[in-house]
């Protein structure tokens, strides 16, 4: 139990996918303009990551021992098609959920955070349960970073900022400060 908690907190805060590993930066900078969209994107991310964890575990256990060189290709194809399939199923079964996740579901599939999750959990040798917890932590971390950046960006809209720095440059510097703040979590466990 303790180890699972450690995996979760580590992925959520200490090794935050966005702020420490720089995965999923494109949507992080692109879609973080409004708080609500950011939250939905984050939720869709958690959703896809959980599916990915199951896919990665299945591939690692049943197929890849026989053909290790197919790792990348099989990961990306299986993940993309599963997400596509799940998207259709969700649309049929729960239109509300589908509406909430919206366009982000298919877009996220080619997000580097998803493939990164599959690769990292393979490298760390996680089993199914550990992989799922890791996915939950990583997805939560991405959501946290997105929501934080979006809230700060909504505030900066009203501020009097020099025209030159507006846009991507400002967002990157805000992200840098956020990332610095998250570095503080590194001491969380060694102390206790």
């Amino acid at each position: 139990m303790g180890e699972l908690l450690w995996i979760f907190v580590s992925a959520l805060l200490i090794n935050n996918f966005t702020l420490a590993y720089f995965l999923g930066i494109c949507p992080f900078l692109g879609v973080s303009g409004r708080l609500e969209t950011a939250l939905r994107l984050g939720l869709a991310n958690i959703f896809v990551m959980l599916i990915t964890a199951v896919c990665a575990w299945g591939l690692n256990t049943f197929i890849l021992p026989y053909a290790p060189y197919l790792r990348l290709i099989s990961f990306i194809i299986v993940i993309a098609s599963t997400v596509q399939f799940v998207e259709m199923a969700v649309k049929k079964l729960s239109p509300e959920l589908f509406k909430a996740l919206g366009i982000f579901l298919p877009l996220i599939t080619t997000n580097c955070a998803i493939l990164g999750l599959a690769l990292f959990s393979t490298n760390k040798g996680y089993g199914l349960l550990e992989g799922l917890v890791y996915a939950l932590g990583a997805g939560g971390g991405v959501t946290l970073a997105l929501v934080l950046l979006a809230s700060i960006r909504e505030e900066t809209e009203l501020m009097d900022i020099p025209k030159l720095i507006k846009g991507v440059a400002l967002n990157l510097i805000i992200a840098g400060i956020l990332s610095m703040a998250f570095m503080g979590f590194a001491g969380l466990f060694s102390a206790g």
């Binding site: 702020l19 720095i165 440059a169 990157l172 510097i173 840098g176």
Partner: peptide
Amino acid sequence: VIMILPPGGFFTLGFLLLFINWLQN
């Protein structure tokens, strides 16, 4: 040291983009 840690990546790129904006302006 902060420059080779993750935050440094964000800062360096942010300031480089700022510099390029300034050049274009």
